[in-house]
Nucleic acid binder design. Structure first.
Lengths: 168, 168
DNA sequence: TATTGTTATACTCTATAACTATA
DNA sequence: TATAGTTATAGAGTATAACAATA
């Protein structure tokens, strides 16, 4: 967004918190703020890669999810649960992906209430192209060391489990 | 958003990546996806706390930033740089905070181009109330162990420095 | 010329509520 | 009754571009 700051604003905030008598929660506050900021940086990188392909991150996640389903198809409700997004967000994403020809809606064979989302050949090709681009330009150059990646995976899995994301 | 999933979807995705020949970037992909998901969980908790106070996270950040400024006032451009948000986002946030009586705009004493944002007494009181609530209900119960908090702070600071957030 | 900030506009994603159809 | 999905509507944040005023 601009030139680098001379000092780390999150470390400064942590010191401010301590100085104002919040020493007991200053460190978690700093960690949580850092997660927020890191997410901003990463989402910006991801969207820079996806934009030329005509995809947003939310739509890429949908295509990637479908491409890993054995049959290339999933019920709307299952996509909502796996992607952890609101059902209306799924409807919205599928509407746009369908209009662009990357997915199609189909009736469920046995349950008349549910709609299946199916990946089209164009959608599958785009998902593969986008995944290759993200792997090369974002995940392959994350800037995290191997050890730090392992630490992040473990720490954040513990957090997500405790937050009720999954049972395991 | 729903019941816990039986399995960790990010760990599953990591295995899928490996199975599809992306083993070299599967771990960073999982770490980055976990950061995204963790941010979602945390922002939801934060907004649940701020909503009864009539604040969004973006507006709380603005109030908190001003409350730590020695004079309680900052130029728009400085707020944009420190909060790492677009100038139009600052204009938007200040418009709404000003309308609610929590900040006011004032001309800069020496540079006629710049606008100073000043915290009102009501704004300062609200910032303190919101900070106390967040400390008690979010940062004080983050679910991270002390060691993990230290790891996160260190790992994410390294990442942000490398990403050009700050020089240090 | 460059910088600061605003305005207008547009596009995400998200959320609530009301609704239809099916189980 | 409960579940699946859609629609309508609203709100938030973000971004670009054009612009005014000042340095």
């Amino acid at each position: 967004m601009g030139a680098p700051l001379p000092r780390d604003p999150i470390a400064d905030a942590q010191r401010n918190w301590e100085r104002h008598g919040w020493g007991d929660v200053a460190a978690p506050m700093a960690a949580i703020t850092a997660i927020m900021r890191t997410q901003q940086i990463l989402i910006a990188r991801i969207e820079d890669v996806l934009k030329p392909l005509g995809l947003t991150f939310a739509r890429y996640e949908m295509l990637a999810l479908l491409s890993f389903a054995r049959t290339g198809a999933l019920p709307m409700s299952k996509a909502s649960a796996l992607l952890q997004v609101h059902p209306t967000s799924v409807t919205n994403a599928v509407d746009r992906l369908e209009k662009a020809g990357y997915v199609s809606r189909a009736p469920h064979p046995t349950d008349g209430r549910t709609t299946l989302i199916e990946l089209t050949p164009e959608g599958r090709a785009l998902a593969e192209k986008a995944t290759a681009a993200l792997n090369a330009e974002v995940f392959g150059r994350s800037g995290f060391t191997g050890d730090d990646v392992e630490s992040l995976i473990r720490i954040l899995a513990d957090f997500r489990r405790q937050a009720g994301d999954f049972a395991d």
